[in-house]
């Protein structure tokens, strides 16, 4: 099997996986899109499978517009990303990965 391994500085690539800075044997999440939403939205994400994602929102009402927390009502399917704004938020950020939910 072909692949790529990169060791940490000063380490051998042939020893423990702990000494690797990168290995194609392991899963590496890859960011595909980062987008800010300011209203309830359903839109196509451009992939033909349901991607991994992270969502953050700002709790503008209680904490301030520049303070962000993991969460928000976001869902994905094989076509769309759907964003439902929390009542206390003015922004929801969605980080979509090219990697599917498998």
């Amino acid at each position: 099997m072909l692949g790529i391994k990169i060791s940490k500085n000063g380490e051998s690539v042939n020893t423990s996986d702990d000494n690797l800075a990168f290995s194609s044997d392991f899963f590496t999440p890859k960011i595909y899109k980062i987008k800010k939403y300011t209203s309830n939205t359903t839109e196509a994400h451009g992939l033909d499978y349901a991607p991994m994602f992270i969502a953050l929102y700002n709790n503008a009402l209680l904490a301030g517009t520049d303070v962000y927390t993991i969460g928000a009502s976001v869902s994905v399917d094989s076509a769309n990303v759907k964003v439902f704004m929390p009542s206390s938020a003015t922004e929801v950020w969605v980080i979509l990965f090219a990697d599917g939910i498998e």
């Binding site: 099997m1 072909l2 692949g3 790529i4 194609s24 044997d25 899963f27 590496t28 999440p29 890859k30 960011i31 595909y32 992939l47 499978y49 991607p51 090219a98 990697d99 599917g100």
Partner: peptide
């Protein structure tokens, strides 16, 4: 680009690649 195990790097779609220079990794 490096394909995930079991995929041909020349045919692989974006979700089938372990490394893809077009995308951003987490650092």
């Amino acid at each position: 680009r490096v394909a995930k195990q079991g995929f041909d790097v020349n045919m692989a779609k974006v979700g089938e690649l372990a490394i893809d220079e077009r995308l951003m990794t987490m650092k």
